[in-house]
């Protein structure tokens, strides 16, 4: 396991020097941002098997608060990050307690409904800029605004946050909570009959997931400097987290990262190559690739990797005895 961490760390640390140029640097930052939010979603949707399509609420809370503290009091936007986490965890509690009574698809549907409700409320809430949205500092007032022209500072900030998220996930995976969540994923009732405090642990997973999703939202707001109901709370944001985790492998440690590494450059490349023609080819190609993966590798690419490794181990195991003989 250790060599995986070291190798990944080295690759990501070196990336901005390998593929230079502002567009690629920004794409790298976007990959990491998507990996953070995908990994955060993965805590609940992947490990506990509770597929939420309402995570945009937490992303939005994280994105709005930094810009709110800036527009209201002129504070540096980063000051809103902890507030975003607090609000997200609180919302997670309020949403989680009633909706975790629902199972499977009903839970997913409830999260969609709540997220759309929040989007509509925010669209009419003047304090949050209503439908116009909130802007960050147009021109940076100092380093504390974290408003950089280059994407490299963002890249390394995002990389550090991603490392924290992955470390926490890794720790959780091997702890009691990890086993509980996997038991819940395998079967809600079965887990309960084995004495797993199901609703409490689902709630823990949701709160942890909400906190990290909120951080991703705050980082987005810091980099883009603008949020409106569509870009902060739109259903596409929740869906993107889900796709990224599912593509790479939901419920695996590096799955969301792998999903982001594939999906975000793919989005950027198809848009840059085909977007200008206005033919809509961007989405056709993007959708086609997702369909191919869904058809041939529904468990996500990480699962394909694991299956491959297992086959190699088995072959090695089958070969070894002959050597011994």
């Amino acid at each position: 396991m250790r060599w995986v961490w070291i190798a990944l760390g080295a690759v990501f640390l070196a990336y901005p020097w390998v593929l230079a140029g502002p567009f690629y640097e920004r794409m790298g930052a976007l990959v990491l941002l998507a990996a953070i939010s995908g990994s955060a979603w993965n805590l609940l949707g992947g490990y506990a098997g509770q597929a939420s399509v309402g995570h945009a609420i937490f992303y939005g809370a994280g994105a709005y608060l930094p810009l709110l503290v800036f527009t209201q009091w002129g504070l540096p936007p980063i000051a809103g990050l902890p507030a975003g986490i607090a609000v997200s965890v609180l919302i997670a509690l309020v949403i989680g307690i009633p909706t975790f009574r629902l199972l499977g698809h009903y839970f997913t549907m409830a999260t969609v409904a709540v997220a759309e409700l929040v989007r509509l409320v925010v669209s009419n809430w003047d304090l949050l800029g209503a439908a116009v949205g909130l802007s960050g500092p147009a021109v940076s007032r100092g380093w504390w605004d974290l408003s950089f022209r280059s994407s490299i500072p963002y890249y390394y900030i995002f990389l550090a946050v991603l490392a924290v998220v992955l470390l926490v996930t890794w720790q959780m995976e091997r702890s009691r909570m990890g086993f509980y969540l996997r038991a819940i994923k395998a079967g809600d009732r079965a887990a309960r009959s084995l004495g797993v405090p199901v609703r409490r642990y689902k709630l823990y997973a949701l709160m942890l997931s909400a906190a990290f999703t909120s951080v991703a939202g705050s980082l987005y707001a810091l980099m883009v400097g603008f949020v409106d109901p569509d870009s902060g709370l739109g259903i596409l944001i929740s869906i993107e987290m889900l796709i990224i985790a599912a593509l790479g492998g939901a419920g695996t440690l590096f799955g969301p990262l792998l999903g982001a590494v594939i999906l975000i450059p793919l989005q950027n490349a198809t848009n840059s190559w085909f977007g200008g023609s206005g033919s809509g080819a961007t989405y056709v190609i993007y959708g086609g690739i997702i369909m191919l993966i869904a058809r041939y590798q529904p468990g996500g690419l990480m699962n394909a990797w694991h299956a491959l490794q297992e086959r190699r181990h088995r072959r090695a195991a089958a070969v070894e005895p002959r050597h011994a003989a």
Binding site: L30, Y220, V224, F226, D228, D230, S231, N271, S272, G275, G276, S277, G278, T282
Partner: peptide
């Protein structure tokens, strides 16, 4: 010509 898909980011 570039397509921004209606998305600020």
């Amino acid at each position: 010509i570039a397509d921004h898909q209606g998305n600020p980011s």
